Amino acid sequence: MSSEKNVGRRLFLGFNYVLLGVIALLCLAPMWHTLAASLSSPVELNASRSLLFFPVGDLTFKGYEIVFANPSIWKSYLNTMLYVVGGTALGISMTALGAYTLSRRYFMPANTLMLLIVFTMLFNGGMIPNYILILKLGLYNSAWALLLPAAINVFHLIILRSAFQGVPAALEESAKLDGANEIQIFLRIILPVSKASIAVIVLFIAVMHWNSWFPASLYLADRAKFPLQIILREILIDGNTNMTSGGANAAISIYKSLIKYCTVIVSTLPILCVYPFIQKYFAKGVMIGAIKG
C-alpha cells in the first residue's frame, strides 16, 4: 500500500513540476523574446514575425545607443527614480503608522475606522472629482500630485495591520514593563518582527510607482517632470522615438521596432535587478498574519 502511495505521490509531483515548468516558460518567453529582439539587426527584426529565442542577424547594440542618446530617457529616468524613492518612503511610513494604530487592541474605534477605509477601496469619487481636488489643493503639475494620493493603499494597509496583529502581545507587555512607550514599541519591536511583511509592501509600493503613468498624464503638464513610463508610452504607442545619435538625426523608420524593444528592457531592468534581493521575503511576508490558530 505504501509503495502505491509513493508511486502516486511521484506521479503527482512529476505532473506538478511539468505544469509549473510550462507556466514558467510561458511567462519567460515574452521577456526572452524582447531581450533577443533588442539585440537583433533592425532589418532582420522587421522581417521576422515569429517568437525569437536568439537575436536575428548580426548582434548589435545600436538600439541601446539610440535609446541612451535620447535626452528625454535620462531625464525621465531620474524623475522616476525620485518618484519611486520618495513615494516608497512616504508610502511605507504612512502605511506602517496607520496599520500600527489600527492594530492596537485597546484602540476602540479601530474596527469602525477600518470599515470606512475599506469602503474607500470599493467606492471612490472617480477621475474627475480627483482631478478637481488636485487642482483645488494646488498640487497640479507638481510631484506631490503623484505622491500624496498614493501615500496609503488600502490593500497594503490591510496586510500590515494583519501582520502587526500577529505579533505576540507578550512582547509588547514585556516592553511596557521595562518602561517602553508606544514609539519605542513600534520602532524596536513591531517593525523588526514584521520586517518580512514590510519588505513585501516596500516592493509593492516601489513597483506601483515605477509602473505608474496614468496619474502623471493627468496631473503633470511640464514635460521635464514626466516619469519614464510616459516616455515609454510615447515610444510604444505614439511611435515618438526622438532618436538622435552623435548630434545627427537618426529617426529612421527601420529602427522603430528595435527602439521599442530596447526601451522596454531599459525600463524594466532596475526592477528585475532589485527583486531577487527581496523575493525571499515575498511569500513569507504576504502570509504573515493570514494564518490563525
Rank of each mutant, 00 (worst) to 15 (best):
M1S: 13
E4C: 03
V7A: 12
R9D: 09
F12R: 08
G14W: 07
V18E: 01
L20T: 05
V22Y: 05
L25M: 12
L26F: 14
L28W: 10
L28K: 02
M31I: 15
W32T: 04
A36V: 02
A37P: 04
S38W: 09
L39C: 09
A47D: 14
L52M: 11
F53A: 07
G57K: 09
V67M: 12
F68I: 13
N70H: 07
P71I: 06
I73A: 04
S76Q: 13
Y77K: 02
L78Y: 10
N79A: 09
T88M: 02
L90A: 12
G91N: 05
I92W: 02
S93N: 00
M94G: 06
A96N: 03
G98H: 03
Y100M: 04
Y100Q: 03
T101S: 14
M108R: 13
N111Q: 07
L113A: 10
M121I: 00
F123C: 01
G125T: 10
G125Y: 12
I128W: 09
Y131G: 06
L133M: 15
G138I: 01
Y140V: 14
A143K: 10
L148Q: 07
V154A: 05
H156M: 01
H156N: 09
A163W: 13
F164C: 08
G166P: 04
V167A: 07
K176V: 04
D178H: 03
D178N: 06
R188C: 08
I190E: 01
V202H: 02
L203P: 03
F204H: 04
V207R: 04
W210S: 07
W210G: 06
W213M: 01
F214R: 00
P215R: 04
L220E: 13
K225A: 14
Q229V: 11
L236K: 08
L236C: 08
L236I: 13
G239W: 03
N242T: 12
M243L: 15
T244I: 14
G247K: 09
N249H: 04
A250H: 10
A251C: 02
I252D: 15
I252Q: 10
I252Y: 12
S257Q: 15
S257A: 11
L258C: 02
K260S: 15
K260F: 11
T263G: 10
V266D: 06
L269W: 05
L269T: 15
C273I: 15
P276W: 11
F277K: 08
K280E: 13
F282I: 08
K284E: 15
V286T: 07
